[in-house]
Design a protein around this nucleic acid. Sequence first.
DNA 1: TGCATAACCGGACTACAGTCCGTTTCTATT
DNA 2: AATAGAAACGGACTGTAGTCCGGTTATGCA
Lengths: 188, 188
Amino acid sequence: MPRADAVRNRELVLATAERLFAERGVAAVSMDDIAAAAGVGKGTVYRHFGDRAGLALALLDEDERILQEAVVRGPAPLGPGAPAAERLTAFLTALLDLHERHLDLVVASETAAAGARFRSGAYAAWRAHVAVLLREARPGADAETLADVILAPLAGDLQRHLRRDRKLDGARVRDAVVEIARSVMVDS
Amino acid sequence: MPRADAVRNRELVLATAERLFAERGVAAVSMDDIAAAAGVGKGTVYRHFGDRAGLALALLDEDERILQEAVVRGPAPLGPGAPAAERLTAFLTALLDLHERHLDLVVASETAAAGARFRSGAYAAWRAHVAVLLREARPGADAETLADVILAPLAGDLQRHLRRDRKLDGARVRDAVVEIARSVMVDS
DNA sequence: TGCATAACCGGACTACAGTCCGTTTCTATT
DNA sequence: AATAGAAACGGACTGTAGTCCGGTTATGCA
């Protein structure tokens, strides 16, 4: 059983980080800032979240759980019931939307030492979901690896570049990502 | 005209970095190490290359120029003459190979503050090339954005994860990347 | 050759991520 | 209620990326 002060501090740090990120922007807030504003030591922040990417991941966790729930048990086409190609399109659209809403947080969560992102539970779940849909539409294909490739364009730094530097709107980015996925599903 | 000592120091730093990276691995060499081993000040290193990613990019530059030359003026299927789909496959295979040979350097070059990678000349050239091939095969498509999406799985951190953590061999990764690209070219 | 100046050089300095360990606080047990 | 020990706490400490600016050196020109 976890100690009461530990869970209290974890929540406190999470809430403080969320507030500071909203107030000043993710890039302008240091780990020291968060610890100081929460009134705890730096060590406490790092014990709970490992590193900056881990903290960002924890902040994304709630929204990712909601999406995951919708994918597993929600209504079609996101949830079960629709054809695989439609489910994939719906899923990619939803995940792109999530990434757009929290773009800086996603970037922070991916700026890890050695691609910790790909070892996160969330990424594994997304990959597994895409792989299942691929296998359904194209048995025999290397679904796992294709899933990684299909998810690659959702990387935070690319999304940020397309949207902020190149000023593409969400629909255009979505169409490109979805079209690629659709092609793979359809083709022999 | 550039000063003689400046070009001399630039070459010196480049050669020193290459040697240290080869000896100890990219991750284990700091910018201070490089400056010290080259016998110059830190400021000199940063003036010439901007940041760590810029130095990595400069080290990759030679190989990228060679590939670029082969793409523009070399023999088919990499160079002009082959059908667009074949050229795209050849190009992606060659670029994946380049990234595999210098994986840690590529990762270092992409660990930039704010996706500087996408603003590099090399990336712009690759994107333009892919876009041209796409337009040839599928007029009317959003070739620029699709090119970004097709290049996304070549990101260093994903490649490193697939190859080192998940232990996939190069052929399997290549097949997945190429298959996606092929699907997009073929499909309506 | 001597000079003016623009470019270059170097290393001290700042800010930040992440580690470490002595100290404090909680909780299960008696 | 007292206590022992595990777990959490916090802040000093380290290593590194990147900045800044006073001093130095190369180069074009007279």
